[in-house]
Computed example of a mutant assay.
Amino acid sequence: MLGLTKVRSMGPVADAVERAGGNVARVFRHADLPLQLIDQPDQLIPLRDQLCLVEHAAREIGDPALSARLSLDCGIAGLGLYGQRVLSAARLDAAISWANVLISSLLQSSTHLQLTVRGGVAKWSYVVTDACTVGRQKNEILALGYMLDLGRQFMGRSWAPTRGVVSGPMLQARTTLEMTLGADLSLDAVAGLCFPAPQLATPNPARSACPNDGCADNGPIADDFLACVEHLIQLKLLENRPSIDWISHRLGLSRRSFQRRLSERGTTFDAVMRTTLERRAEALLANADRSISQIAYDLGYGDPAHFARAFLAWKGMSPRAWRQGLRRGVSARAVLH
């Protein structure tokens, strides 16, 4: 299954590139990602594209420790609802438990966090299960930055683990990375942080309230093939209407294999596209700041009239009537009847 992650998990990558004098547009172009993602922190993108973007950004500005700086600058609090829920825990062990449970529902899929305690030593591990290669180690270091920040939220800014671990046959720029993270690094099969187990009982010195106590009940970000396709369509819509070849390439499939998988699920690319456009149209119409004409162009329609006809076919009413119903607090069913 294709791993997906929220854009905010990369931290302020565009700002970092710009501050260092790099070309932000070129970095996004090399990663084949729309520049508009800068303003879409909760947009889901393929995890492998995140790894690729961070890798290209590091090369653009010549900073081998960029991934560490990004997560430390953002901090766990910058990870939206995920960070807020984790920071609402009473003790460090509870915070880590929330982080482990919620990562696949609130931040990214195809990654796994686990806490183990042996012989008085706690190891908080981070594993990427997506079969990606480019930038994998930088992604681990990005994750270590967030994990370190969480530990320091509880134990003070000078806290350092016994050691940090990343995977791979070699570690480049070790000294620079260790200075940036403020932690010693070593190589092993699984990335993570090691620290004395008694520190797990450290109370939260600045416990925050969670805005959504039921957030643990949210479903996975992408739990099936069709959900991944819909997320990829939404991603490409930030730039233009996606083609079937663009989507199949992003999934690592040939066009024929992609179509066969859709057929096995009783649908077609055109049908998934229509469903995604309908859902996206509803979300955009709920935003009163965007005109219907602009929404039509955002969805890849060359003419607002084409969008109006498509929406009428979906909902049995015009986009304007749908929006007016939302403003009056009337359900779509009530508007229809």
Rank of each mutant, 00 (worst) to 15 (best):
A222K: 01
P220Q: 13
L70P: 03
A99G: 08
D298W: 01
E140L: 15
V272W: 00
F258L: 02
L79K: 01
L81I: 09
L312I: 03
G164Q: 13
R207T: 14
F225L: 01
V134E: 10
S125L: 12
D184K: 11
L262F: 00
R328C: 02
R69F: 08
I76W: 14
T202L: 02
E239P: 11
T5G: 06
P205I: 05
C228M: 03
R256D: 08
E55K: 12
L66W: 08
L284Y: 09
M179D: 15
V272R: 02
Q153W: 10
L187Y: 05
Q199P: 09
A271E: 04
H249M: 08
E140S: 15
A283F: 02
F225Y: 02
A332R: 08
R250V: 01
N240G: 09
P34Q: 04
G168N: 15
P205V: 05
P46Y: 06
V330I: 07
L70M: 10
A209G: 11
R69V: 11
V121N: 08
L35F: 01
G214E: 15
N240S: 14
L2D: 03
D289E: 12
A160R: 12
H112W: 14
G119P: 04
G135D: 09
L33V: 01
A310Q: 11
A189F: 15
V335G: 00
G302W: 01
G164C: 13
S110W: 02
L35T: 00
L251G: 00
R279I: 03
R309P: 14
R26Y: 07
Q199H: 10
A197C: 15
V134T: 13
G62P: 09
P242L: 00
V117S: 08
I141Y: 03
N204A: 11
H337T: 14
A305R: 14
D39F: 10
L81D: 14
S104L: 06
S186F: 06
S257V: 07
L177Y: 15
D188T: 06
F307Y: 05
P211C: 04
L312M: 10
Q43N: 00
G316Q: 12
R152K: 11
L106Y: 10
L51F: 15
V7K: 05
A14K: 15
A14M: 11
L238D: 00
A89G: 13
G214D: 15
D289H: 10
L44N: 05
A160K: 09
Y82L: 05
G151F: 07
N240I: 04
D42F: 01
L2R: 08
S97T: 12
R163A: 07
H249L: 09
T175W: 11
G192K: 08
L113M: 11
A209K: 11
A222M: 01
A206I: 10
S208E: 06
M10V: 09
R163L: 11
D149P: 06
R261E: 14
C210N: 14
